[in-house]
């Protein structure tokens, strides 16, 4: 448990701080100012910054979604902190005219999940695998976010969603949502299709114009999930990070990056590259439009390289 907590301090975040800032306390004089964009009938997108988690962005890097229903607003992914969850709550009330009545958390990572602190745990829903992993890793995430975000995190406690999300249709306030229980980016990745508008909220199974993050990824499982997403009839895709996708680009981008990453790391070990060299490998030009590509490549080297060496390098001695 102790190790688990410590080992996820940075490893499990969807982002991290590149260079420490000096004088953080003096710099902190702001609140969050999330903006909602109407993207379909009764559906609003709140964009996160396409950056790593950093003090300058308060950790608000993940996308959030509002869906209006007769029973109140459904909020998908409440963001990184208590204050952000509260800001989303006020924003939802303003744009939808109704308070948040249900929260879905797509997966465990704190840039998506920790804003649940602003809501009654009874209205927060997640896959059982997500709750299980939050029990194990939540304290470590919390340490890491407080270290990087300091006052932005004020009052944020780890809140475990009490509702079980499961594969299948859910009708809430007269609006039918189809839930998909998948995995690959993490052990539990919830995707939600709003039947009325064909809006598919994919969580971090999709990254758009931003390199995918892999701290808990099983790449084979993730690629299988992408195949499944491609087969789900939809009109709009909302990735976990990056802009709204109207034509499926994010599916192709995420698949292309993961396929390239897997092959490149599996090639780096047998050709004798060390971790620094693997992290410095050429990133193909076709990924030039993906933000934070080098950063995520180096994180992925950290996530996968020791395991690949244990798998691919022969035993010597004995």
């Amino acid at each position: 448990m102790n190790l688990n907590r410590r080992s996820v301090l940075t490893a499990a975040l969807a982002g991290g701080v590149l260079v420490s800032k000096v004088g953080r306390t003096e710099a902190f004089a702001r609140g969050y100012d999330p903006q909602a964009e109407a993207i379909a009938d009764g559906v609003w997108l709140v964009r996160g910054k396409d950056e790593p988690i950093a003090f300058d962005n308060g950790g608000a890097i993940a996308n959030s979604v509002f869906i209006a229903t007769d029973a109140g607003t459904v909020l998908i992914d409440p963001g990184p902190s208590l204050a952000y969850g509260k800001a989303l709550s006020a924003l939802a009330q303003r744009v939808t005219g109704a308070a948040v009545a249900r929260v879905y958390i797509t997966h465990l990572h704190p840039d998506h999940s920790f804003g649940a602190a602003a809501f009654d745990p009874a209205i927060a829903h997640a896959l059982p695998a997500t709750r299980h992993d939050l029990v194990n890793d939540g304290d470590g995430f919390s340490d890491a976010l407080y270290r990087m975000l300091a006052d932005w995190m004020s009052g944020t406690a780890v809140v475990l969603p009490q509702g079980d999300a499961a594969e299948g249709n859910v009708t809430f306030g007269g609006r039918t949502l189809r839930l998909f229980a998948m995995n690959g980016h993490s052990n539990g990745d919830l995707a939600i299709l709003d039947q009325k508008t064909g809006t598919l909220i994919a969580g971090d199974l999709l990254f758009h114009d931003r390199a995918p993050a892999t701290p808990h990824a099983d790449i084979d499982g993730w690629l299988a999930a992408l195949d499944r997403i491609e087969g789900i009839s939809h009109r709009l895709l909302i990735p976990g990070h990056g802009p709204l996708d109207r034509n499926g680009t994010s599916i192709a981008q995420t698949r292309d990056w993961l396929t390239w990453l897997r092959a490149s790391l599996r090639n780096a070990v047998p050709t004798g590259k060390d971790m620094s060299e693997a992290g410095a490998m050429t990133i193909p030009d076709r990924f030039a439009g993906l933000k934070v590509a080098r950063y995520e490549l180096q994180r992925s080297v950290s996530h996968f390289y020791p395991g690949l060496e244990a798998e691919l390098l022969p035993e010597i001695g004995r």
């Binding site: 410590r6 991290g16 590149l18 620094s276 992290g279 950063y295 180096q298």
Partner: peptide, 15 residues
């Protein structure tokens, strides 16, 4: 040569 981020503080590659 250091990575842009110490992703895992238990295993930080240095060349």
């Amino acid at each position: 040569i250091l990575p842009v981020i110490a992703e895992d503080q238990h295993v930080v590659p240095v060349t």
